[in-house]
C-alpha cells in the first residue's frame, strides 16, 4: 500500500474520498433526518438529463447539469412539500424521465458517446485537482450555511409545523436545503458517480442517527464513517484492481448490514 501512496492519482483519490465523505456526512444528515432519501435519489438520477442536454446543445456539462438539476430539484421539492404523502409517484416519474431524456439526447448528439457507467459509478481514480478544489469550496459554503441556520434547520427538520407556528420561514429553508442537496449532488456525481453519492448520503447518516443526540454529532459521526468507508473501499479497489465506487459502496453496505443485524440481535437478547 505504501508505495501506492506516493502516486499523485492515489493521493487525489484519497483526498476526493475524504472530501466526498465529509460533504455527504453533512448533507446526508439532513437527508436522513428529514426522510427525503427518495427525493435525493430522484434529484441525483434526473441530473443525467442535464448531461444529455448540455451535450446536445453544446455547452459545458457542468452548467447543463447544474441548471437542470437545480430546476428538477426545486420542482420535486415543491411537489414533496405540497403533498408529502403522494409526491413519491411524481418524483419517480421525474427520476425516470430525467435519465431517459439524458440517454435520448446523447443518442441524438452526433459523434459523441458518453459512458453511462462512468456517470453512475464515477471515476474517483482519475479525479482532478480542480474537482478537489470545487469540493472543498462547496464544503466551506455548506458549513457556513449550516452554521448560520443550524437551530432553524433543526426545528424545520424535526417538526416543520411547530417551526411554522414559531414564525420560522419554513418553506424557504426547506427549499434552500433541497437546493443544497442538489448542488452537492452535481459536484459529487462528476467525481464519484451518482450511485455512490446516494450510498454516502444515506448509509452512514442512517447508522449515525441511531446513536446521536444532535444533528451536529450525527454529521461528525456520519462524516467519519464515510471517510472510513471511502478509504477502505479505495484500498480494496487498488489491491484487487476493481471498480473503486463499487468497492466503497460494498464496504458501506456490509457495514450497514452488520449494524442492522447487530441491533436486531441485541433487541432479542
Amino acid at each position: 500500500m505504501s508505495e501506492w501512496l506516493q502516486l499523485p492519482f492515489v493521493q487525489n483519490a484519497l483526498a476526493g474520498g475524504i472530501l466526498a465523505g465529509i460533504l455527504c456526512g453533512i448533507m446526508g444528515t439532513y437527508v436522513v433526518a428529514n426522510r427525503i432519501a427518495y427525493l435525493a435519489g430522484g434529484i441525483a438520477h434526473s441530473a443525467y438529463g442535464g448531461v444529455g442536454l448540455a451535450l446536445f446543445l453544446g455547452f459545458s456539462p457542468l452548467w447543463g447539469v447544474l441548471g437542470f438539476t437545480l430546476t428538477g430539484a426545486l420542482i420535486m421539492g415543491w411537489l414533496y412539500l405540497k403533498e408529502r404523502h403522494r409526491a413519491d409517484t411524481a418524483i419517480g416519474v421525474l427520476w425516470a424521465f430525467g435519465m431517459a431524456v439524458g440517454v435520448l439526447l446523447t443518442d441524438l448528439t452526433p459523434g459523441y458517446n458518453v459512458d453511462l457507467m462512468s456517470y453512475l459509478f464515477g471515476s474517483i481514480l482519475t479525479i482532478s485537482r480542480e474537482s478537489l478544489a470545487a469540493m472543498a469550496a462547496l464544503i466551506a459554503a455548506v458549513l457556513l450555511f449550516v452554521a448560520l441556520f443550524y437551530r432553524d434547520l433543526a426545528a424545520v427538520s424535526y417538526d416543520d409545523e411547530f417551526a411554522r407556528v414559531r414564525g420560522i420561514p419554513v418553506t424557504a429553508l426547506q427549499l434552500l436545503l433541497i437546493g443544497a442537496v442538489a448542488l452537492s449532488v452535481v459536484v459529487l456525481i462528476r467525481v464519484v458517480g451518482l450511485i455512490l453519492v446516494i450510498a454516502l448520503l444515506t448509509i452512514a447518516p442512517y447508522m449515525a442517527e441511531k446513536r446521536c443526540r444532535s444533528l451536529a454529532s450525527m454529521m461528525v459521526t456520519a462524516g467519519l464513517l464515510n471517510c472510513v468507508f471511502a478509504l477502505a473501499g479505495l484500498w480494496i479497489s487498488i489491491q484487487f484492481n476493481v471498480t473503486s465506487g463499487a468497492a466503497i459502496i460494498c464496504v458501506a453496505s456490509l457495514a450497514y448490514f452488520a449494524f442492522v443485524g447487530g441491533a436486531a440481535l441485541r433487541r432479542r437478547a
Binding site: 437551530r151 433543526a154 411547530f162 414559531r166 420560522i168 442517527e209 443526540r213 444533528l215 450525527m218
Partner: peptide, 20 residues
C-alpha cells in the same frame, strides 16, 4: 415527528424559544 430524530428532550423544548 420522526421518532428516530437525533435530539434530546432539552433541545426539543428549546425549539419553543425560536421567535419570528
Amino acid at each position: 415527528a420522526n421518532k428516530h430524530f437525533p435530539i434530546s428532550a432539552l433541545d426539543v423544548v428549546l425549539m419553543g424559544r425560536l421567535r419570528p
